[in-house]
Nucleic acid binder design. Sequence first.
DNA 1: CTGAAAGCGCTTACAG
DNA 2: CTGAAAGCGCTTACAG
Lengths: 339, 339
Amino acid sequence: MAQKIKLSTIADALGVSTATVSLALRDSPLVADATRDRIKDHARAIGYIYNRRAASLRTSRSGIVGVVVHDIMNPFFAEILRSIESELDRSRQTFILSNHYDQLEKQRTFIDTLLQLGADGVIMSPAIGTPRDDIVMAEENGLPAVLIARTVEGAQVPVFRGDDAYGTGLATNHLISLGHKRIAMIGGTDQTSTGRDRYQGYVSAMEAAGLDIMPHWRIPGPRTKQAGFEAASRFLALKDRPTAACCWNDLVAIGLMNGIARAGLVPGVDISVTGYDDLEEAAIATPALTTVWNGQREVGRQAARALLDKLSGHAVRPSQELIKPELHVRQSTGKPVER
Amino acid sequence: MAQKIKLSTIADALGVSTATVSLALRDSPLVADATRDRIKDHARAIGYIYNRRAASLRTSRSGIVGVVVHDIMNPFFAEILRSIESELDRSRQTFILSNHYDQLEKQRTFIDTLLQLGADGVIMSPAIGTPRDDIVMAEENGLPAVLIARTVEGAQVPVFRGDDAYGTGLATNHLISLGHKRIAMIGGTDQTSTGRDRYQGYVSAMEAAGLDIMPHWRIPGPRTKQAGFEAASRFLALKDRPTAACCWNDLVAIGLMNGIARAGLVPGVDISVTGYDDLEEAAIATPALTTVWNGQREVGRQAARALLDKLSGHAVRPSQELIKPELHVRQSTGKPVER
DNA sequence: CTGAAAGCGCTTACAG
DNA sequence: CTGAAAGCGCTTACAG
């Protein structure tokens, strides 16, 4: 590697000061057009690389935004990330990604890293059990936070997520309107706001229709395709087996349908199944999955926008506006078939 | 936000120099135990946050590693990323992730960002058309690179990937041994080394068995579940329709199977299908997918190790060792059924 | 429109 | 074992 090229290398070569070079490279109107062009051309010619660490040390702005979610392998988060990415790209912010796998320690380590790097902000889907103080600490140290998908009680920050109770209500009501009376709820956890809300939506819809809710019709836990697949045998062995399953998310629903098919039954005919999220793959599952659109794109876009607004000094109120989910009916639901 | 706490804040409070504080916080043996403990306790008590930008500016080591792949939403890369992540975590390196979506410009922007941040290295699955010079430029500017999944002709850097030709050979031979004579190859592109190698493996196996290879039996392009799904109708309409499909990857295979099922045929019975990669979901697909294990975990682990070795000054030879794929036979393949 | 100088918060020889 | 001082490469008042 040749001698490191820096601002002063350019300044010396062109007989100007580093201040002028610095301003010219950032297109400051303070520099004469001719000077600016001469500087930029030369910089490009000799392969100058801007040192962001040095600049950031001086300005205490890093151009880095952190994003931490449960697991990027989960297509739900992957879809959100895509829209965050395209939004941040537009404002030339670099983003650093991390999974916390719902481990508080991993999340804390990551936030610490962001603080050390002087990140400008963080978008997070908080790990289970995230205390309000973790968010407060970040903000007090100059790391503004925006939450997605889950909320943290008492944290005065913007949060973008869907109306989960309303969403499972849509799915459950759809099953009820088809004539189902015994409906299971598969997957999810009470440890997150999302989990509690989705379950609540199911319960409210069942109660409103005057239907019984059997505790053993709820199989909590599954959140992945694999877990949904494994839950199928438990579901199929259920006493008074339900004719329909309202699933925590699309992954669980698709896994469950695979498990049902493996057992020789036809999902969508023998057992109705609903998902949640409307992932890209819901439409091409076999059968195509009836599910609840959860606005991943919107969540990502709005969260990124809110953070960028915050960074540019606009006041962003800690909104709790929920994105309204929509039911997308496909082939995985039908009239109940009694044995 | 209170007054910024820095090394000198601690030094002043404790009546020592910043040099001593700096050394103490990094557990240098040069500092007396009592002094070190006093310093570390105080630092923790007042909530000191280490400024990595300042340190990095001074040491020109950033603790940042870049990772750029085609698309993290693709489970193939997601599985690789997981093992890279766990490997880098162990050495306390932060990693920055980016998708290039096979756009050279996006990849260049990202590499530029890494250079500006003074990243220590980059692990990349190069975008289609990546010239050797892009890699050379990065290395010359102090950003060592390690390649995964794809290679770049003439780049003198380590590359970790599977033996693709051998892998599709395994799948094709498996189909041939079941009695299939008309076998299609669905998906992939000739623009990547991976694409060429996988197609070559299929061709060689067909030729070795003395079977005809019809040009129209190849449907190039698809690399996603959605595209595989859409390819099903083209495949099913094929003249002299093949009895089996050797697919570019698991996503295409699963999509194709969904499309076949949607058309009223039974994948694994009417049409045999093989995948490639052995993603986690291959085992729970319906039917369970016969596929080629491609060692994602190994690729990620080895690539991360190689980069870390390079960073700690060990010489890493530009190896081309290929990971040996393995055939995993499941239910999506069977004897041919003639119409 | 341009330049000289200070300073962001660390680490590293060097001296004692 | 500890301290004084220089310097990493920028940007930003300030002066002209």
